[in-house]
Every structure is written in C-alpha cells, then in structure tokens.
C-alpha cells in the first residue's frame, strides 16, 4: 500500500487559533486576596494605578504637609538651634487642615467609587466576604493616612538627629508622636471612611468629612477657650472628648510637654481621652463593616 504523503506545514508564519485555554494554575486564598485588595487600595489612595490627574491632589497635599518640616530642619541647621521649634506631636495639630483635606478627599476614592459605579457588585460576587472587603479598604485608608502623618515626623526626626540634638530625647519624643499619629489616623480613617461609605457622591463625602472634622474642632476649641477664660476647666476637658483633633491635643498634652487649652487632668480624664480615641476608631470600622454587610444583602 503506497504511503500517503503527509502534508507539511512550515514551522513559521502559521497563526494558530488556540481557542479557549482553561486555567489550571494555583489559586490564592482569602488572605492573599485581601492583601492584594489592601495594596491596590493603598496605591489608589495616592492616585497610583489611576489616571495622572488623580495623583495631583494627594501628592500636592503630601508636599504641602512636608514643606514646614523641611523649612524647620533647614532653619535649625542654619541657626544651630538646640531644640525643634515645632514639636513632633504638635506638627499634626498645626497642619490639621491639610490632614483633613487629605482624608476627606481620599476616603471616597476607596469607599464611594465602588458604590457609585456599581463595581461593588463585582467584588461581592468574588470570594472575599463583605466584611473582609470593608476591612481591607479600611486598612488601606489607615495606612495612607499614617504615611501622611508620619512622613513629616520622620523628616523632623532625621533633621534633629543630623543637627546633633540629644538622640535619646528626640527618639522618645518622635516615638510618642508616632503613637499619637496612630491614634489620630484610627479616628480620621473611621470617621472619613464611614461617611464615604454612606455617600455615593464624592463631593458630599468631602464636604461632610471636612465639616465634621474642622467645624467640630472649631466648636470644641471655642468651648475650650471660653471655659479656660471663665476658669471652668472641667467643661473644656469634657468638650475636648467630642472632636478628633481636640482628643489628639489632649492626648498630646498627657504624653508630652506640649501645652494646649484645657488639657485633661487626673488619671480618669486622661484615660477617658485615650479610650475615646480608640473607641472612635473601632466604632468607625464597625460602622463600615455593617454598612457593607447591608449592601451585600440587597
């Protein structure tokens, strides 16, 4: 039987339509997925991985927030100062407007966008539970806020060490400021995240967050000023429990030598300040988790 000639095709220049290829590689568990969501959220908070336009605001705010620290360090080296003109912990109070704008503007990036564009449905149809989604988003905003608060502290600390100020004293002060920054970031993340997760519109979330943070602080500061003048210090101390920035000032007064109006006096009041800071943070996170649980059940 004669052999059939086998048609030969050239080794190159042939396009094969491979059709659909199934995936049989590894699949990650919830922990890895959640950390991927955290990482992309953290990057998105600074506009990374998004359009060029969305990088402008966060980096502009970051630069403005760092500017005073750079000036202070420069002036300190120039005039051979023997202490920082602005303490580590006081720095966040001095730049609270920038901090407020940052969290108000960037919380909607993490919380409102998915609600507004409906992409939350795609996340919820994936393995992560609504609670894991909420915690990953919350952690991303917390980390971004911490970076925002800690960068100037690090800059001041490096400057102080290079200017050969007392190393152990500077380290202790910077560490206290870092702890206070964590508490402040917990409160700001809880409040701004909760507001952003309730509002679908970014503009509303921005305005509402700034109103709560800055107007709240304004009212509390006014009450504290009056109570200080009238000698009713206790009123000012209690009023200080009602705004994140006054809580932060109270905590700063308790931990450092910085002086603010009507600082908390007595162990109970001081403990109350720290307890409320932590509670505000926890309540914010709990609110966000509940909010997404409700969305998932719709």
């Amino acid at each position: 039987m004669p052999e059939q000639p086998v048609p030969r095709t050239g080794a190159s220049g042939v396009i094969h339509d491979l059709g659909y290829r199934p995936y049989d590689g590894p699949r990650n568990g919830s922990g890895t997925i959640a950390s991927a969501l955290f990482l992309s959220g953290f990057r998105n908070a600074f506009g990374l991985g998004r359009s060029g336009k969305s990088k402008v605001l966060p980096f502009l705010l970051l630069a403005l927030n760092l500017l005073p620290a750079v000036i202070i360090v420069g002036a300190m080296t120039l005039f051979n100062a023997n202490e920082l003109p602005l303490g580590y912990a006081r720095y966040a109070s001095a730049t609270q407007i920038l901090v407020s704008i940052f969290v108000a503007a960037q919380a909607p990036v993490l919380f409102s966008r998915d609600l507004r564009h409906g992409s939350i449905a795609l996340y919820l149809a994936r393995p992560l539970s609504s609670a894991a989604y909420a915690v990953a988003r919350w952690a991303a905003l917390l980390a971004a806020t911490l970076v925002f608060l800690l960068v100037p502290i690090v800059a001041l600390y490096v400057g102080a060490v290079l200017a050969e100020l007392d190393f152990s004293e500077q380290t202790e002060e910077a560490a206290k400021a870092a702890l206070l920054a964590v508490l402040l970031a917990l409160m700001l993340t809880g409040i701004s995240g909760l507001i952003a997760s309730v509002s679908v519109r970014r503009g509303f979330a921005v305005v509402a967050t700034i109103a709560v943070l800055l107007l709240g602080n304004g009212v509390v500061t006014a009450v504290q000023g009056i109570s200080d003048e009238q000698g009713e210090l206790r009123v000012g101390e209690v009023a200080g429990l009602f705004s994140p920035y006054s809580l932060y000032r109270g905590g700063t007064s308790a931990l450092t030598d910085e002086l603010f109006l009507t600082p908390p006096t007595g162990a109970v009041m001081t403990a109350a300040y720290f307890a409320v800071m932590v509670l505000v943070g926890i309540a914010g996170l709990a609110g966000i988790v509940l909010r997404y649980r409700r969305i998932a059940g719709r």
Binding site: G25, P26, R27, S40, H117, S119, A121, L122, P127
Partner: peptide, 29 residues
C-alpha cells in the same frame, strides 16, 4: 457573574480592571 446594572469605573481601562478582578478571584498577578 455579570450584573444587570452598570459596574465599570469610567477612569480605569478594561485591561487593568480585568487584571484586578482576576486577582480578586484568587489568581496570582
């Protein structure tokens, strides 16, 4: 799952979005 309503963020490319959601389903990057 393909939802009935809109679910695409307007400022992201389809390529980036599908990569991201693939990772959200557990695929390595």
């Amino acid at each position: 799952y393909l939802p009935e309503h809109d679910c695409l963020p307007p400022d992201v490319s389809a390529s980036d979005f599908v990569v991201h959601l693939g990772m959200m389903s557990g695929l390595p990057r």
